[in-house]
Amino acid sequence: MDRPIRVLVSKPGLDGHDRGAKVIARALRDAGMEVIYTGLRQTPEQIVNAAIQEDVDVIATSILSGAHGTLLPKIAELLKEQGAEDILFIGGGVIPDEDIPELIESGVKAIFTPGTPTSETVEFIVNNVRK
């Protein structure tokens, strides 16, 4: 039996809009993945600690408040500190295109902006997760 891909779905920062995070959590579940959902108001430290203990393959974060420039690089940095850069780290939400290169530079592997079909995210995960 193929082992299921384990994904941590999380909302960093104070933003409370979790429709996107929940929709993606369901879509990943329906694609046969094991989703660990940590809910709202997560600090980068909480997210990385959870990711390590749960030994996830993917961290998927959703952020709509505009705090992505601070929080996502912080998560990437903590992952590096823990030697866990092999975890596929992705983000979604209201993130202007012009901010994306900097986020990718910091270690986020992909950014999904509004209107991205969930199937595209699923496909990206399946193709890019550590084997």
């Binding site: 299921p4 579940r29 094991e34 989703v35 660990i36 959902y37 809910g39 749960e54």
Partner: peptide, 8 residues
């Protein structure tokens, strides 16, 4: 698949 939400 599953959604594990106890951690929250």
């Amino acid at each position: 698949g599953s959604i594990l939400g106890d951690r929250i």
